[in-house]
Amino acid sequence: MNFSSVRIITDDVDRLINFYEKVMDVSAERPAPVFAELVLPSCTLAIGHSQTVQLFGAGSAVAAENRTVIIEFRVHDVDAEYERLKPFVNEWVKEPTTMPWGNRAVLFRDPDGNLVNLFAPVTEEAIKRFSSRR
């Protein structure tokens, strides 16, 4: 089995695409007006309009209601990303901080309120833990 993607359901696809194109520094692929994918070598972030939910079964997902998932991206330099994204992020949850498990991280919310974490392993143990991962 291969992990393929995470999909965010939203009422405003264009707004989230614009936001995540800036965060991820890639252009979205738009196979349909109600759906987009932002593809990186290590993961794909899909964004679907709430209208697409009915294709999976009514009520299976509700836009902007997530309060349990954190979308995480490993970056080279957390502090540099924080500075780069300051003009685009409206809600910072945690400024750059080194966490007890050895990652430097910054946490913010996307326009729909989903949590986004940018992190980099910085301690010897954390670097070792991530050394075999892409």
Rank of each mutant, 00 (worst) to 15 (best):
S50L: 01
V62S: 13
A28E: 01
L40Y: 06
I47E: 14
G48Q: 12
A61C: 03
T44M: 12
L45R: 06
A32D: 15
E29D: 12
S42D: 10
R67G: 15
H49N: 13
I70T: 14
L38Q: 03
T68N: 13
I47L: 15
V53E: 12
E37M: 15
F56A: 14
L55D: 12
L55S: 11
A58C: 02
V39L: 09
F56E: 11
P31C: 05
R67V: 09
A63T: 05
E29P: 00
E65P: 02
F35H: 14
V69D: 01
Q51F: 02
A61R: 02
A63E: 01
G48P: 01
R30H: 09
L40R: 13
C43E: 06
V62E: 15
G59Y: 06
H49F: 04
Q51V: 09
A64L: 00
Q54R: 10
V53C: 11
A36R: 07
V69W: 01
A36L: 10
A46T: 11
P31W: 07
A28L: 06
E65Q: 15
S60T: 13
A64K: 01
E37A: 13
P33L: 07
S50I: 03
G59S: 04
A61I: 01
V69F: 05
L55H: 05
S42Q: 11
L40C: 06
V53W: 08
A32T: 01
I47N: 11
L40F: 05
Q54M: 06
G48V: 02
A28V: 03
I70R: 12
A61D: 04
C43H: 03
S60K: 06
A46P: 00
I47C: 10
A64C: 06
S60P: 00
A28D: 11
I70E: 10
T68S: 15
G48T: 00
H49Y: 03
